[in-house]
Design a binder for these strands. Structure first.
Lengths: 256, 256
DNA sequence: AAATACTGGTGTAAATAATGAACCGACAGG
DNA sequence: CCTGTCGGTTCATTATTTACACCAGTATTT
């Protein structure tokens, strides 16, 4: 694999439960030699992508990322536009709302507003949403550029729960369904007890560039709640797409 | 140079005035061959660090950065802590306040709150502050780990204005002065007409990890305003350092 | 309208840069 | 005092990156 790709893959080893990682562990987790990992880390540290705690010698994501994020937001406001919309969406539905944008081959979470209820869905910050196992992923694939679809159908599909679609035929059917409906549902296909409903966000080219979703405890989803979520989502995605300078294509219609 | 470093350097070519860049331009600006640049871009796109506009074929910073930034903030809240402090600082002083953290060898701006006055200092989002030419840089160097100091003194010092210290002797003197005072001033050393006052932010190890600064139009800086800024800065840096889990060393005292 | 000069992107042989095993000193626990 | 692990370094081997030429498409200019 390309060296740069391998180096950047290291960044994906950090998550909420493991914000700091030592050299040896990083090497073990990535399957790359210690010496190589160290060189990569030093290279990335030169750009502030990672930094090293001087006391523990552990590595963590660096402040340079914050700088780049601000720069990206300056030219292309996304979180800024989406966060208030998420807040309203969570308020209207009473459930956890989240937004994601295409980052590489998958969707990266860029904003979450949690439900106010005590029994609510929690979404880890910076979570990567698998395209085949989440409502957001299905909604995105249904309206993304065609190569995204063929790519995901060609991939091996990991089973996250018993309900995850793992063969390309059923996945294709789910995506077709999402395209016909204008939105996607995922009944415990990623996490048990979690039901997701998602609609695509569109870029300036009229293709999907991300998704907006509402996640509820599966047991709580009544037809009434579902209808309320769909209505709120439809308005929110229109607003978010417009706010980001996107264009909603004519063929995207919400089927009741 | 290391390939990963070179690839990540490409990210620094994007700024507010140039949020999207084409392949050829990117190659020309970086001095790297087109084919190489393209491979690097594709590698970085796989992690969402950059993305390509399908219509214009231009490249821009990717949404993956937003995801990483959220992840970093989850483990090490910085902007979240600092932004309200900056807002108060700007309010109290009536001038533009900004914060920066070490990112690689230099300081990267991670937050700005502008003055409310019509004649105010503007700070470009995601700006990289040269250590030798800005108040933030001096304040940081004065209290950073010793190797930072020796490193900056060994570097060639670019002249941004006529007042920029360009030889290591005067730079060392300025830094010593900042260490003695507990804060640093920069009188039009980076931008003409801009006067900066900065204090260091400290990490958990008791060494500087960034800076908080107030920038004023040079003509407006009266002794009274300067005193007000210093008082507000002192309180703000204490608060910010504490909020980020840092430790203020005993030898940092503000000299009136 | 023809020609020129860009653009983004691809394939190749040559050369450089990445690689990984062995090694080092430091530290922690038994 | 041994043992295991840590972060980090070294260096010969090799596989990757690199740069050049080339291609096709598109503005711009003549």
């Amino acid at each position: 694999m390309r060296t740069v790709q391998k180096a950047l893959k290291l960044l994906d080893l950090f998550d909420e439960t493991r914000p700091e990682i030592g050299l040896s562990v990083l090497a073990r987790l990535s399957g790359i030699d210690k010496a190589t990992v160290l060189r990569m880390l030093n290279d990335m540290a030169a750009s502030g992508l990672v930094e090293q705690d001087q006391a523990s010698r552990n590595w963590r994501l660096g402040a340079g990322i914050l700088r780049l994020a601000r720069l990206r937001e300056a030219g292309f406001p996304a979180t800024e536009v989406i966060n208030p919309i998420l807040a309203q969406l969570a308020g209207e539905t009473g459930e956890t709302a989240h937004a994601s944008l295409r980052a590489g081959r998958d969707l990266g979470t860029i904003g979450v507003v949690e439900s106010a209820r005590s029994n609510r869905v929690y979404i880890e910050p910076g979570l990567v949403l698998p395209l085949h196992a989440t409502a957001s992923g299905l909604a995105y694939c249904a309206f993304a550029r065609p190569e995204v679809l063929s790519d995901v159908l060609a991939r091996p599909l990991s089973a996250h729960t018993g309900a995850t679609p793992t063969d390309s035929a059923t996945l294709a059917a789910r995506i077709d369904e999402a395209r016909a409906q204008g939105y996607a549902c995922a009944d415990q296909t990623y996490e048990a007890e979690v039901f997701g409903i998602a609609m695509p966000l569109f870029g300036a080219d009229g293709f999907a560039c991300g998704a907006l979703a509402v996640a509820t405890p599966a047991a709580r989803l009544t037809p009434e709640l579902r209808a309320r979520i769909l209505a709120a989502l439809a308005r929110a995605t229109r607003e978010a797409t417009r706010g980001m300078g996107g264009r909603i294509p004519e063929h995207h219609r919400i089927a009741a």
